[in-house]
Amino acid sequence: MRVNFTVNGRPQEADDVWEGESLLYVLRERLGLPGSKNACEQGECGSCTVRLDGVPVCSCLVAAGQAEGREVVTVEGLADYARQRSWGAAPGAPLDSPSGEGTDSLTGEGAELAPIQQAFIDAGAVQCGFCTPGLLVAADEMLEHNPDPSDADIREALSGNLCRCTGYEKIMDAVRLAAARQSEGV
C-alpha cells in the first residue's frame, strides 16, 4: 500500500508498504529517518517515541497505515519543531529554512538544537545515547505543556522511557536545565 503523511513538516510518500509494517519501520527503513530507535519494538522502552498529531506515541506500536494523512515529528525534526513553537507558528507547518545548514557533517557541530537537546548534552544525560531520541521527544512534549515541572512530574512524564546507562540522574538534570533556560528565555 501507499502511505502519505507529513514528517517533520514535509509531505512524505512511502510506496509498497506491507500492511504489517510499523510507523517505526517506515520511518527508519523507507524514509531514511533512523533517529527513532528500535530497542524493544513492543511498546515498553519508549526509544521509538515520536509525536503523532502532537501526541507522543511509541511508533513501533502504530501501524504505518494509521499515520495516513497525519503529522509526525521525530527527533530529526525536534529542533525545527521547537524553533517554530518559540516563534508561535503552528507546529508541523512547512519549514521556511531547514536547519542543518552550516553543520559539520562529521560531528554535527554547528547544528541548531532544541533547548532540550542542548540540555541533554550539557548535563551529561547522553551516554550510549540509544534512549536519547525517545526521551528528547517525550521531555520536549512535557515541557510544552508543563514548563515548570516538579521532579515527580518529570519522573512521571518520562516513566515510559527506559535508559540503561545513566541511572536517570543526569536526565533529571537535563530536563531541569531545559526548563530553567526556557523560563529565563535563554
Partner: peptide
C-alpha cells in the same frame, strides 16, 4: 575537566549511526 562528549550532538539529533541503523 568535564568536557562534553564529541558524539553528543550526533546522538541528540538522531544522526549518530548505531549498528541497527546501517543501510
Amino acid at each position: 575537566e568535564s568536557t562534553l562528549r564529541p558524539d553528543g550532538t550526533l546522538k541528540v539529533t538522531g544522526e549518530f549511526a548505531y549498528s541497527s541503523d546501517l543501510w
